[in-house]
Design a protein around this nucleic acid. Structure first.
Length: 802
RNA sequence: GCGAGAGUGGUGGAACUGGCAGACACGCUAGGUUCAGGACCUAGUGCCUUCACCGGUGUGAGGGUUCAAAUCCCUCCUCUCGCACCA
């Protein structure tokens, strides 16, 4: 009894025990129901974990442990997303090989995670930089290539002036590089691309079949950005060339007074002989290309542009002449790279027309186009619009589109904001792309049996300022015979982007060391899909969408059964520093879990992670608050001294079963903070009473166990529990025990609380009314006035209106 | 600008489909205990007024619906996140 709570020893003891006994190793067993819980596998950075990481892990560990106690065969795996720029940059700076950096970081992370006692199945640990793993990343790429979903294209791409690499659109944040913060400009480069746009509609439709938190669903929908409209051909005067545009407002076609093309639009070079002010146009184009993303979005509120003098288009419905302009407010990468400008009914066009003195025509009545564009689509009525005059916008859209189709002038069209995925980095630390370039055969995929194409060891992995990968400098690796014809050929030297390995890792966990297949059919069929995936909101539009795309593709080629990989997706809120700011090294507010565990122990840290606040909201760390959780565990520890009696005691029975219900439900809803609060309140009751029976105590330990597994196992053992907690079953509550004999009813008079009375739980409204109107305080508050209305909310309150 | 979330004590946060605001903690105050510190135990703690009771007031601001509003509606303010000329 004198034994004090010593987390250091207890935690090590149980971690060793679980590992030795293989308690959390998932075994394929079709006779048992499976449950697959997943956290986003960490990127092993040099900094190690901060206290934000364990939030998601503790939450899903809690679910995983609860599921096991509920009888499920749980797969809760862990691995490393270890390719990527930060490691490479660190390696360059400290002159250590990225592989060595990775090994060191993984060892550090492993120690930190093990210290926290998560019930990961470490026997399935994977690492994206392991050739046995990336062999299958490369295999999937070859399959994508085979099915026409990987292609090379000359693209204006984002060039990071700091990292000297091409960035995906998603890596450009507010015009600067997401990683290094340097400015981003445009460059043309041959890039490997993945045709995710071919899956846009299915990725959108799939969202209706899965259980994602609404914010994630909405963000993906917006990112995919479906919009319905029409493509319309405009004739270029004195030529047979058509200029095709996309519009969501074909109803405003009669109001189109000029056209605008993107600076990169091919029509400029095609008609260079006819463009009178070609020099001016080219200068504008160069200036636009030089602009960084930042200047193009943040700073340029003012529209710019140049007229293509010498070219004129004709409006196909009213034959009017329309000047053609070039402006960077039109994007080459969306729609057709050209628009019909309807300044009367589009804000951007209105602004542009106003600045350059172009005509503004009203074709939808209801606004005042002299002041601003009228963009309403509910009320407006078409005017000045030939065959669609008098119609509402929705009707006009349909009719004009039908007309355009009949006349061969255009067609209905759906566009997506989603763009193809730039699938290449000019860096060393990534999966080599398994293709060879042959002068005779062109692009030749490596035969599958030659996989993995191993990343060669290399002396100098500094990126070249030519924009080429360091691999290009390794002659003996680059020069190979063509797999098809045997002639001298060269390997692709770009590597895959960081998102490659993480796009399918959850499949590999099913069968992590299979050398024959990505994973066995049996294992995939049994374990997939992931039942519950928790991760950060920042991955909603990148990782989550990319991995859904790959999974859908793998479904199409028969590798996985279900189209969607994740049945349920939730997200944690960010853990902020004690000063309420985002935790970061530069702000100096990073809290290291090692130090926290050294002071209060892993269980107290885990408890505090969940108790800190609402799981899905951002919340600041508080070291004082964390210490409070340690205090609570001390209180749990001392319950041993209060063990007396047998069975379930009469006075705790209601609270006990209410606790079982509340905790069970709150864990499922990720309301961990209130689940913990309920258990704290229960223990306060026990302290007030100074007694708890062994049965009650054991139920409490099981409820606490998913959050604080070490202390509960230890207490179970030293108080003589049978076996171990991980061998027990999740407790069920007894509905009958929740019923009470008497309830307290609040009495309001005119909506203000004046009194409280105790009534039998079974009391009828008439009985409650009688008791309430006999209550002294109530009568005093009524002041002798007659009762006008009596409102009774059963079991809760009455409101007396006088 | 658009989209999403949020605004409740000194602090983090509770509050079911509108029904007793502030659960549970942190901090603080007083007392006890302790060699000191820490830890622990007991009591108190939204604000105003009061010795105390009673009373009043109170969920970003203002208005509304209702017997009853943190919760629903309208107007406005602030913060966080995401997107950003997507035709």
């Amino acid at each position: 009894m004198a034994k004090t709570y010593d987390p250091k020893n207890i935690e090590k003891k149980w971690q060793d025990h679980w590992e030795r006994e293989g308690v959390f190793q998932a075994k394929l067993d079709p006779s048992r129901p499976k449950y697959y819980t997943l956290i986003e596998f960490p990127y092993p950075s040099a900094e190690g974990l901060h206290v934000g990481h364990p939030l998601s892990y503790t939450a899903m560990d809690t679910i995983s442990r609860k599921r096991r106690l509920e009888g499920y065969n749980v797969l809760f795996p862990i691995g490393w997303d270890a390719f990527g720029l930060p490691t490479e940059n660190y390696a360059i700076k400290h002159k250590i090989h990225p592989r060595a950096v990775t090994e060191k970081n993984v060892a550090n992370f492993t120690g930190q995670l093990k210290m926290l006692g998560f019930s990961f199945d470490w026997s399935r640990e994977i690492n994206t930089t392991d050739p046995g793993y990336y062999r299958w990343t490369q295999w999937i790429f070859l399959k994508l290539l085979e099915h026409g979903l990987a292609y090379k294209a000359e693209m204006p791409v984002n060039w990071c002036t700091g990292c000297q690499v091409v960035l995906a659109n998603e890596e450009v944040v507010e015009g600067v590089c997401e990683r290094c913060g340097a400015s981003v400009t445009h460059r043309n480069k041959e890039q490997w691309m993945l045709k995710i746009t071919a899956y846009a509609q299915r990725l959108l439709d799939g969202l209706d079949t899965v259980d994602f938190i609404p914010q994630a669903r909405t963000q993906q929908r917006n990112w995919i950005g479906r919009s319905e409209g029409a493509e319309v051909d405009f004739f270029v005067k004195d030529s047979d060339r058509k200029l095709r545009v996309f519009t969501t407002r074909p109803d405003t076609l009669y109001g189109a007074t000029y056209m605008v093309v993107a600076p990169e639009h091919p029509i400029i070079e095609e008609y260079r002989d006819r463009i009178v002010n070609l020099d001016e146009v080219r200068a504008y184009r160069e200036q636009a290309a030089r602009k960084s993303e930042f200047e193009r979005t943040e700073l340029s509120t003012e529209k710019t542009g140049v007229e293509l003098k010498g070219l004129t288009a004709t409006n196909p419905v009213n034959q009017k002449d329309m000047p053609i302009w070039v402006s960077d407010y039109v994007m080459m990468t969306y729609g057709t790279g050209a628009i019909m400008a309807v300044p009367g009914h589009d804000n951007r066009d209105w602004e542009f027309a106003t600045k350059f003195g172009l005509p503004i025509v009203e074709v939808v009545s209801g606004g005042d186009i002299a002041k601003e564009a009228y963009t309403d689509i509910e009320e407006g009525i078409l005017v000045n619009s030939g065959l669609i005059n008098g119609l509402k916008v929705s009707e006009a859209k349909k009719k004009i589109t039908r007309y355009l189709v009949e006349q061969g002038l255009g067609e209905a069209k759906v566009n997506y904001k989603l763009r193809d995925w730039v699938f290449a980095r000019q860096r060393y630390w990534g999966e080599p792309i398994p293709v060879v370039w042959c002068d005779r055969c062109g692009c030749v995929p490596l035969p599958e049996e030659e996989l993995p194409l191993v990343l060669p060891d290399i002396e100098n992995y500094l990126p070249g300022d030519t924009g080429e990968s360091p691999l290009a400098a390794i002659e003996e690796w680059v020069n190979v015979p063509c797999p098809k014809c045997g002639a001298p050929a060269k390997r692709e030297t770009d590597t895959m982007p960081q998102w490659a390995g993480s796009s399918w890792y959850f499949l590999r966990y099913a069968d992590p060391y299979n050398a024959e297949e990505l994973a066995s059919q049996e294992a995939l069929d049994y374990w997939l899909p992931v039942d519950w995936y928790n991760g950060g909101m920042e991955h909603t539009t990148l990782h989550l969408l990319y991995s859904r795309f790959w999974h859908l593709f793998l479904h199409d080629i028969g590798v996985v059964k279900a189209p969607e990989p994740y049945q349920k997706r939730t997200s944690q809120g960010m853990v902020l520093g004690e000063n309420n700011e985002k935790m970061s090294k530069s702000r100096g507010n990073v809290i290291n879990p090692d130090e926290v565990v050294a002071v209060i122990g892993a269980d107290a840290l885990r408890l505090y992670e969940l108790f800190m606040g609402a799981f899905d909201q951002p919340k600041p760390w508080s070291t004082e608050g964390a210490k409070g959780c340690r205090r609570f565990l001390e209180r749990v520890w001392r319950l041993r001294g209060m063990l007396r009696g047998v069975g379930e005691s009469e006075d705790l029975r209601g609270a006990l079963h209410a606790m079982i219900k509340k905790v069970s439900e709150d864990y499922e809803r990720m309301k961990y903070n209130t689940a913990v609060a309920t258990m704290m309140a229960f223990i306060n009751d026990v302290y007030a009473k100074d007694a708890i029976t062994p049965d009650e105590f054991r139920i409490l330990l099981i409820l606490l166990n998913p959050v604080v597994p070490h202390i509960t196992e230890e207490l179970w053992e030293i108080t003589g529990g049978q076996g171990h907690i991980y061998q027990q079953s999740w407790p069920q509550y007894d509905e009958g025990a929740l019923a009470v004999d008497e309830v307290e009813i609040a009495i309001q008079v005119l909506g203000k609380l004046k009194s409280r009375i105790l009534v039998p739980a079974a009391a009828t409204e008439a009985q409650v009314r009688e008791l309430a109107l006999a209550d002294e305080k109530t009568l005093a508050a009524m002041g002798g006035k007659p009762l006008r209305r009596f409102i009774y909310i059963p079991g809760r309150l009455v409101n007396i209106v006088i």
